[in-house]
């Protein structure tokens, strides 16, 4: 596919901003952007932020939440950095949704550089690339947290935090979101994961809404996810029984089931081929 790269840079004044952005403290006077600006984009919009060092779990969460949100016609706003941001943009594009990226640098600076392709794809899909900085401004340590107020400020329906350590930019965004009076969602994680400490803290101490499924955000249930294992054979049922509790390696499963390793590994592979389970980093989990 030939991607068009000659999108002009335009400027929008504060007066033309969506209402929710105008209201925030420290609101920028103007914004530079590429794409076709339409305030309707932000009428139903939600920001997704999270760690740059996303884990497989974080990826899984993004891939589970974004399609559902896009199906409900949410525009996804994020910060274009690698990790959760990039995955959220990518996943939205993959689902045919509209996504808005707020950069920590100027519009002519591609940070991270490997994301250049996504940059143009976002525009191609009717999204926006926004920056409050001069077009050739190189991002700095302070400019990333500064643009976070715009990420949360633009969102109408709240901010979702997926994975964050205690000292992360995502927690800054979360604080700003509360100050701006936005709804704050956090997806919890295991308590021994460093990447979950931040989000769990938001739920426990900062009154974030615990989001364990996309329905917690969309409020209306579109699809009911239920595991139907009635037509599985006995060994498959047993495997699922263990995997529902926690992801396991082939070794651990074979030991729990008391079965030969080769037999179990064959079974697991066939189950994954039938989309009954999935594997990442040597661990099997239910879909």
């Amino acid at each position: 596919m030939n991607i068009q790269k000659n999108w002009p840079i335009k400027t929008i004044e504060k007066a033309d901003f969506p209402e929710q952005l105008k209201r925030i403290t420290n609101c920028p006077k103007k914004l530079n952007y590429r794409g076709i600006w339409n305030n309707k984009i932000f009428d139903k919009s939600i920001a997704i932020v999270g760690s740059r060092r996303m884990s497989q779990y974080g990826k899984w969460v993004v891939e589970k939440f974004v399609p559902e949100l896009v199906a409900h016609k949410f525009a996804i706003i994020s910060g274009f950095m690698y990790g959760v941001d990039t995955t959220a943009h990518k996943e939205t594009l993959g689902c045919g949704g509209v996504t808005v990226a707020v950069l920590g640098g100027g519009l002519n600076v591609f940070t991270p550089s490997e994301n250049e392709k996504i940059y143009w794809e976002i525009l191609e899909h009717g999204g926006l690339i926004i920056s409050e900085y001069d077009n050739d401004f190189l991002p700095t340590l302070w400019s990333f947290p500064q643009r976070n107020r715009i990420v949360s400020g633009l969102s109408k329906d709240g901010v979702i935090v997926i994975e964050a350590t205690m000292k992360s930019g995502s927690l800054i965004t979360a604080r700003l979101a509360t100050e701006q009076g936005k709804k704050l969602y956090a997806v919890p994680g295991p308590i021994n994961y460093s990447l979950s400490v931040g989000v769990n803290y938001l739920i426990k101490e900062k009154g974030a809404i615990m989001a364990t499924s996309p329905e917690d955000i969309t409020t209306k249930k579109l699809s009911i996810y239920q595991l139907s294992i009635d037509n599985y054979d006995p060994l498959e049922k047993e495997i699922i029984k263990y995997l529902i509790i926690e992801p396991l390696t082939t070794d651990e499963l074979a030991k729990k089931l008391g079965k030969n390793i080769s037999l179990i590994s064959q079974k697991l592979m066939i189950m994954s081929m039938e989309n009954k389970i999935t594997e990442d980093l040597a661990k099997w989990r239910t879909i």
């Binding site: 082939t250 037999l263 590994s265 592979m269 066939i270 081929m273």
Partner: peptide, 10 residues
């Protein structure tokens, strides 16, 4: 057979 392929796939 199937089982052999499945194991090799890993």
């Amino acid at each position: 057979n199937n089982a052999h392929i499945a194991e090799a796939l890993q």
